[in-house]
Every structure is written in C-alpha cells, then in structure tokens.
Simulated assay, not measured.
Amino acid sequence: MRPAPEIEVVALEKTYPRPFWPWARARGRKEAARQALRGLSFEVRAGEVVALIGPNGAGKSTLLRILSGLLLPSAGTARVASRDVVRERPGCRREVGAALADDRGLSPRLTARQNLEFFAALYAVPRDEVPPRVHELAGALETRRLLDREVRTLSTGEKARVVLMRALLHRPRVLLLDEVTRSLDPGAARRVRTRLLSDAAARGAAVLFASHDLAEVEAVAHRVLLLDAGRLAATGAFAEVRPTAESVFAAVPKEED
C-alpha cells in the first residue's frame, strides 16, 4: 500500500473578494472579484521535487500561501503532512518549511544567527542541534560571513539566503519555495536551489517550488505542474509539459512600450 501523499490538493479554489475603493464607487466603477484558483487537484509524494510554472497571475503564489497556512481557501481541501491546512493549521505549519517571495518575517535589528535561533526555538529544534544545523546550512547557502550581521544591513539577495536557512532549519517534511532565489545572481541561484532540492528530496521531503527558469526546472524537477488562470493546464515530466507551456506563455499578451 502506497503511503499518503505529503501534499494533497482536491478541488481547491480561492476567490479574492471585490475590493472596496470609495473613489472607484464615486466614479461609477465596479471592481470584480478575482478567482485565483479554479478547482485545482494534485498530489506530491515524499522525496518528490515538483515545479510550479505558469505566467504571472496563474495562481502559483496563492497556492503556496494556502499550503503554508497564510491564506484560507474559498473551497476544496488541501492537506500537508497528513494535516488539513485549515482545521489543523498549527500542526501543519510545524511540518512545513516555507520560503516565499517578498518574505518579511525576519527581525531587522537582530543578526541572521539570532533570527535563526529564535525560529529554531519556535519549531522546537533541540538547543544542542541548532549550532551544527546553522553551520551546515550556512555552508550550503554560502552565508557564513552573514551570520553575525544585523538583517537590516543585508542586501535583498542576502536576506533571501537567510530565509532559505530558516525554512530548512527544522528539517521539514514539506518544503515550499516561491521564487525565493530570484534576487540572487543566476549562477548562485542555480547552485543554491539545485543543492537544496536534491538534499531535501534525498532525506524524503516533498518539495514544491515555483520558478520561471525553465532550464532549471528541466534540470531538477521530477514532475511539473503548469498553471494557467488558476487551472491545472498540464502535468507530467518537463518534456511532456513543455509544448503546452510554450503555447500558454506565448498567449500571454505583452505590455506595450
């Protein structure tokens, strides 16, 4: 009998309500509600690395925020590490390592090391295990020189590395990444993510990551989910999904100069 999937999404929907702008109402304008996810269903197994691709606005960030417990779905269900993301949110979040785009969860006046020690305590990492884990992750993410600097002095790319360390510190069963290495130079981003994904999968974590770098997706993902307007447009190996992905990206209107 196959074990239960680490991520299980069934008919998931998310609708953002119509915004209330007094100035728009005064001008007779009505902003429509926006449906970000439309009946999305898929699974991710332990040790599997799955990539989320799709144009901007396809629903990738919304999906990852629901799975990490930061957003509530409008309909459908999602389970992470065998826990419902709505009814069992605290337990679910303890099993997840999330590094999301524009993450602002670090305390700016604490050093990177102090931030990591704080989150290690929140995740109940044994105190004697924290220093070796920080040392190991700092080597993998090339951050040893940053550990004793205050976060407010770090560049955007340096903060992204610390956020990744925080996501991995408690060895989560599920790892969620949302374009978190986009602020790194291409070479560093590829080195960091390739090593992280392979290491996480090797210890049995389920990995779901969003990326616009199709070459990187082809190199590291076991499977690809293509989202288009909140729907699952295609799923499978990269070679199987690529033709549909190219047509979806080609159909996105380009902004005029």
Rank of each mutant, 00 (worst) to 15 (best):
R2Y: 10
R2I: 02
A4D: 12
P5M: 02
E6I: 06
A11R: 10
L12Y: 12
L12I: 13
L12A: 12
T15M: 11
Y16H: 13
Y16C: 12
R18D: 07
P22T: 02
W23T: 11
A26Q: 15
K30P: 04
K30D: 09
A33H: 06
S41L: 12
F42P: 11
E43M: 11
V44C: 12
V44K: 03
R45V: 05
A46Y: 04
G47F: 01
L70H: 03
L71P: 11
P73Q: 00
S74C: 10
R79H: 07
V80E: 10
S82N: 15
R83M: 08
R87F: 12
P90F: 11
G91M: 06
G91S: 01
A98Q: 01
A101N: 15
R104S: 12
G105S: 04
L106V: 01
P108K: 01
T111C: 03
N115Y: 01
E117Y: 00
E117C: 04
F119D: 00
F119L: 01
F119K: 00
A120E: 03
L122T: 04
V125G: 08
V125T: 08
D128E: 15
E129G: 08
V130F: 02
P131K: 03
P131R: 07
H135K: 15
L137N: 13
R144M: 11
R144K: 05
L147E: 05
R149G: 03
R149Q: 13
R152C: 13
L154T: 07
T156F: 15
G157Y: 01
G157E: 02
K159R: 15
V162E: 05
V162G: 04
V162A: 09
M165L: 14
M165Y: 04
R166Q: 06
R166I: 05
L168N: 11
H170P: 12
R173W: 14
L176T: 11
V180I: 14
D185R: 03
P186E: 06
A188T: 12
A188F: 06
V192T: 14
L196A: 06
R203N: 08
R203A: 12
V207W: 00
S211K: 06
H212T: 04
D213K: 02
A215S: 15
A215K: 04
A215L: 08
E216L: 07
E216R: 00
A221D: 01
L225E: 00
L226V: 02
L226N: 00
A229H: 14
A229V: 07
G230E: 05
R231Q: 14
L232V: 00
A233T: 10
A233R: 13
A234R: 00
G236H: 13
F238I: 05
E240P: 11
E240K: 09
R242Q: 13
P243S: 04
T244N: 09
F249G: 01
A250F: 14
V252M: 08
V252H: 10
